[in-house]
Design a protein around this nucleic acid. Structure first.
Lengths: 219, 219
DNA sequence: TTTGTCCTTAAGATTAATTTAAGTTTGCTA
DNA sequence: TAGCAAACTTAAATTAATCTTAAGGACAAA
C-alpha cells in the first residue's frame, strides 16, 4: 500500500517514514498542505496520513479538499492537541480514523492494516494461495506450513501479488508499491527480487506475463 | 481498444504511449490539434485522450469539432491547469472524463477501463465462445478448462475476435488493434499469428472470410 | 570495527515472441 | 479446369523481454 504522510515536524516525519517503510509500506513524506493537495490530486497514493497542525493551510481544510476530489480515499489524521473539537470535526469531514500524539508506532500500523483490509486491498491478515500463506500482522510467510524468511522487498512484492491473485500486477504497479518517490530504480531490481522470491516458493507460483507484469493464480 | 493520444509534451507522450501499450491498448500518439482532427475524422480510433494545452489549436476547440463529427466518441481530457474553468468547459463540451496533471498512470488505466466497459468494447472479465474462455483480468485463455498459453499478439487477436463473435473482423481492423502507427508490418505477420493461434484452439474455431478477414461464431 | 544481510547494478545467458521470406495449398472465376 | 490471388504453413532470422549470477555498497547488529 502506498501512503502519503503529511507532517511538518521533521523528526517525527522521518521517524515515521522509516518505521512505515520497515513495515512494507511505500511512503511519500511531505510537509505542507499545498504539497499534500498537489500529490493527492495526482491520485498517487492509497491512503493519507495527515497531521492537522500544518504550517500553511489548516489541516481540516486540506482534508475537506481531499474529500471533494477523492471521496473514498482513506485519511487518517494525527493531532497534537487533545482538544476533542478537532477530532470530531475531522471525523465529520470524513477522516476514517485518528490518532492523538504522542502515539505508539505499532498502533499506527494496526490502524493502517484495518484501513487496508477495508479498502479491499487486503482481504484479511491471512492470505492464502495454495500452499503459500502470508500473515500481514507478523509479516510471516509459510509454504506448506514451513516458515520461509523473506526480505522486506520480497515480502512486499509477494503481498502485492497475493492480494491481487487472479489479476495481473504490472511492473509499474509493483515498482510503485516497492519504492517511494525519488528512489525509483533504474535497473532490473524488480526482476532480481522476483527471481530470489521464486527460489523460496513453489514452482510456477509466480507467473510471468510477458510485456506486462506478473501474476499469481487464484487460490 | 484503439486510443488516440494527443499530447505535445514529448516525454509525457512517449511515457504514456509505452504504458498504455503495455496495458494492451493500441495507441496512436500525435502532438497537435490539426493532426488530431485529421485522424479522428478518419474515425480511426475508439477513444481520444486529449491534452487541452496544445500548441496550435486550443484544445477545447478540438474537442468541440470532434464532438460535431463524432458525437459519441469518448474523449478523456488532460489538463495541466488546476483552474476549474477549463475542466468545466471541457465537460460542457462533451468530454467524458478528465484528469489533472500530474496524474498516476494506473488512474488513467482505470478510467479507460470504465470507458471500455461503457463502450461495450467491453472486455468484461470473461468472454466465452463454446469451449474457449478468455479472462481479460488475468489475460488467461482456456480451452475446455485447460489453460493454454498465448503470446501477447495472439492474445490481443483472440480477444478482438471473441469480443465481436458472430461478426467479421477485417484484416485491417485486426492489424490496427495489433499495431500502432509507424509500426505497421509489411508482410504476413497477421496470418502467421492466426495460424499459430489455430494450433492452440479447437478446429475451425477461427473462420476465414476470404478477401475480408476472420470471424468466430456466436457462442 | 567487524560481520552479515539486504539491496542494487550490470553483464551475459536464456528464453520467448515476432517478423520475414519462401514454398504450398486452397478456392474462386473466367 | 487452368490460372490467379488469397490464405496457409513452416522454418529461419531477428528482436525483445526476462532470468540468473555475481560483485560491490549501504546499513545495522554484534
Amino acid at each position: 500500500m502506498r501512503l502519503l504522510l503529511v507532517e511538518d515536524d521533521i523528526a517525527l516525519r522521518d521517524g515515521l517514514q522509516q518505521a512505515l517503510t520497515g513495515q512494507g509500506f511505500a511512503v511519500n513524506a511531505i510537509s505542507t498542505g499545498q504539497q499534500a493537495l498537489a500529490v493527492a490530486r495526482a491520485g498517487d497514493c492509497d491512503t493519507v496520513i495527515l497531521d492537522l497542525g500544518l504550517p500553511d493551510i489548516d489541516g481540516l481544510s486540506v482534508l475537506k479538499q481531499l474529500r471533494q476530489k477523492w471521496p473514498r480515499m482513506p485519511v487518517l489524521i494525527l493531532t497534537a492537541r487533545d482538544g476533542i473539537e478537532d477530532r470530531i470535526k475531522g471525523l465529520d469531514y470524513g477522516a476514517d480514523d485518528y490518532l492523538v500524539k504522542p502515539f505508539a508506532a505499532p498502533e499506527l500500523f494496526a490502524r493502517l492494516r484495518v484501513i487496508e483490509r477495508r479498502l479491499g486491498t487486503a482481504s484479511s491478515h491471512l492470505i492464502r494461495c495454495g500452499e503459500v500463506e502470508l500473515d500481514s500482522t507478523s509479516m510471516q510467510v509459510s509454504v506448506a506450513d514451513n516458515t520461509v524468511s523473506l526480505s522486506r522487498r520480497e515480502y512486499v512484492l509477494l503481498k502485492e501479488l497475493m492480494e491481487s491473485a487472479g489479476r495481473i500486477k504490472t511492473r509499474e504497479q509493483l515498482e510503485a508499491s516497492l519504492y517511494s518517490w525519488g528512489e525509483e530504480v533504474a535497473s532490473n531490481a524488480l526482476e532480481v527480487h522476483i527471481s530470489n522470491l521464486r527460489k523460496k516458493l513453489p514452482t510456477d507460483f509466480i507467473r510471468t506475463v510477458r510485456g506486462v507484469g506478473y501474476s499469481i493464480s487464484r487460490p
